[in-house]
Design a protein around this nucleic acid. Structure first.
Lengths: 104, 104
DNA sequence: AGAATATGCAGGTAAATACCTGCATGTCAA
DNA sequence: TTGACATGCAGGTATTTACCTGCATATTCT
């Protein structure tokens, strides 16, 4: 997993919207995705390239079209490494701050 | 939740390291955190400000020191919105791609 | 074949980002 | 009260990012 690419990919509202669009209807072409985006096609292409580099989207060429599919695996890995770790200690981490605010 | 700030905050290795450092020992001062970072103090301050703006870190002033505490809540919210959604459909999303690769 | 369609490639710009140095302020302790 | 220490503030630079326009290539359909 490359946490860096995954988080950077998710750190942009356009790219999160692309994931949501693909979640509604997987396997859309570049053109279909662009219809929902309000930016030039080439800008959308760049966003999709970033999602692909983060392995969050896989593509398949079909004739002159390019189909885009969500790959949920990196999200799961990010969750395992970056969310569960803190989730496990959630209450004790909050307790640390509370104790300090109350004056030790 | 501000997904944008949270993901952008997580999209930098220094900031993820800061979270790991605080996870090992919560409530560290700026100076303590800097000792583990290999960059100027002011650069670390900027990273901590970004984590604080994303609400991933809360601070408490104690005399001339500033203590830093992890706040795990935004991570949990990001998980609920951005991971569980895809996790629920994980197998069907992967199936879409597999089907396409096999030629419909 | 030729026109329409879908995507790729090559730049170019403005704003954001991640660093830095230098100096100022506030706090503690002898 | 003065020196040492912890942090804050101001500004400066190089790189990355998120857009764009214009043109090229590849595929389909008539």
């Amino acid at each position: 997993m490359q946490a860096d690419k995954v988080f950077k990919a998710l750190g942009d509202p356009t790219r999160r919207k692309l994931l949501d669009l693909l979640c509604e209807k997987n396997g859309q072409t570049l053109g279909q995705l662009c219809e929902n985006l309000d930016m030039a096609r080439q800008s959308a292409t760049q966003h999709l390239e970033i999602l692909e580099a983060a392995n969050l989207v896989s593509t398949v060429r079909r004739g002159r079209e390019k189909l885009h599919f969500i790959n949920p695996v990196p999200l799961h890995e990010v969750y395992e490494r970056w969310v569960r770790k803190f989730e496990r200690q959630r209450l004790s981490l909050l307790h640390d701050l509370k104790k300090e605010l109350e004056g030790e």
